[in-house]
């Protein structure tokens, strides 16, 4: 009986830890991104795109770390506030936001730090 209880407890702990793997990433997302993309990542129609349903992100061809650092504008006409980027965030912070999004919102595998560093050098060259 005792063993059962403690194993259940352990299971709970593991599960709950798993749920909150990217605590800093989530906090940073809420602080820097949620005002436009909403706390739950659903966005605001065609004004601020949804993150959780983003086909662009799911395609795997989107350099999210660069978009976070330097901003992202693809549209010709600016409809709402522009996504300006956060050059002050460190590589680790950007990595945590990126992985919070991939893991919690898109339910995909997190990205390795090496890959994120590589993505970031792709946009640092011109800036």
């Amino acid at each position: 009986m005792k063993l059962k209880l403690s194993s259940i407890l352990l299971l709970f702990l593991v599960l709950s830890c798993n749920d909150h793997q990217y605590v800093q990433g989530e906090a940073l997302y809420q602080a820097y991104c949620s005002s436009c993309h909403m706390a739950d990542g659903t966005g605001l129609k065609n004004v601020y795109p949804s993150i959780i349903y983003s086909a662009t992100l799911k395609s795997g061809n989107f350099n999210l770390p660069c978009a976070i650092r330097y901003g992202h504008q693809k549209r010709e006409v600016q409809i709402g506030a522009a996504m300006e980027g956060y050059p002050k965030l460190s590589d680790v912070e950007i990595s945590n936001i990126t992985n919070f999004i991939y893991y919690d919102f898109l339910e995909q595998k997190p990205m390795s730090f090496t890959k994120i560093k590589k993505d970031l050098t792709a946009c640092s060259a011109g800036k």
């Binding site: 005002s35 436009c36 909403m38 605001l44 129609k45 004004v47 601020y48 600016q78 409809i79 709402g80 506030a81 522009a82």
Partner: peptide, 16 residues
Amino acid sequence: YTFCPTICPTVMKQML
């Protein structure tokens, strides 16, 4: 206002 980056998108979401 449309270019408001802070609270407006959230308020708009509720309006929606």
